[in-house]
Simulated assay, not measured.
Amino acid sequence: MAEAEKVGTILVVDDEPMNIMVLRGLLGHAGYAVESALNGPEGLEKARSLRPDMVLLDVMMPGESGFETCKKLKGDSATAHIPVIFITCLDEMSNKLAGLDLGAVDYITKPFMAAEVVARVRSHMNFQRRQSEIIDAQATRLGQVHNAQMSLLVKPEALPEARFAVHFLPVLEAGGDFYDVLSFGGGQTAYFLADVSGHDLGASFITSSLKALFRQHASQGKSPAEILSGMNRILCAITTEEVYLTAVCLCLDRFQGRYSLASGGHPPVVGQLEGSARMLDISGLPLGMFEDAEYAVLEGGMAEGDRFYLYTDGLAENTGAYVTSQAFRSHLLESCLHNAIMPLSAAVVNMVRAMTGEEKPTDDVVLLGVDV
Rank of each mutant, 00 (worst) to 15 (best):
E334N: 14
Y309A: 04
F328H: 05
G300E: 02
E317C: 06
Q326T: 12
E358P: 09
E334I: 09
H338V: 04
A316I: 00
L344P: 05
G301H: 09
L333Y: 05
Y322N: 15
V349W: 05
Y311V: 04
G300D: 02
S325L: 01
A354D: 13
D313V: 00
F308D: 11
M355S: 12
V348M: 12
V348F: 08
N339E: 02
Y309P: 04
Y311R: 01
E358F: 08
Y309E: 07
E358G: 11
P361W: 05
Y311G: 00
T362C: 13
M342T: 11
L367F: 02
A303M: 15
F308Y: 13
A346S: 15
V365Y: 00
V365S: 03
M355Q: 13
A347I: 07
N318G: 05
A316Q: 01
Q326S: 13
N350Q: 15
A316M: 00
H331M: 12
A346I: 07
E317T: 08
L333K: 07
G305R: 11
V348I: 08
L310V: 06
A354T: 10
A354R: 13
G301F: 01
L333E: 07
A347N: 06
Y322W: 11
N318A: 06
S345E: 14
P343S: 08
G357I: 07
R329G: 08
A346K: 13
T312H: 02
M342D: 13
S330G: 09
L337K: 04
Y311C: 01
D364Q: 10
L367G: 04
G301C: 03
V348S: 11
P361I: 03
Y309N: 04
L337H: 02
P361L: 08
T362G: 15
H338F: 04
G300C: 05
T324G: 10
S330M: 13
E359S: 13
D306A: 09
V365G: 02
A340N: 08
V352A: 11
E304V: 15
V323A: 15
N318L: 03
Y322P: 12
E304I: 13
A316L: 00
S330E: 15
T312I: 02
C336V: 14
D313A: 01
L344D: 07
V348E: 08
E299K: 11
R329V: 06
S325C: 03
R353F: 14
V366C: 12
M351S: 02
G305P: 08
E317V: 04
E299G: 02
M355V: 00
E334R: 13
P361H: 05
E299C: 08
Y311D: 01
G320I: 09
L337Y: 01
G305M: 07
N350D: 15
E358K: 12
M342Q: 14
S325P: 05
G301S: 10
R353C: 12
G320W: 10
H338T: 11
V348N: 10
L310R: 02
N339D: 04
T324W: 07
L337G: 03
Y309Q: 01
L310W: 03
V323N: 15
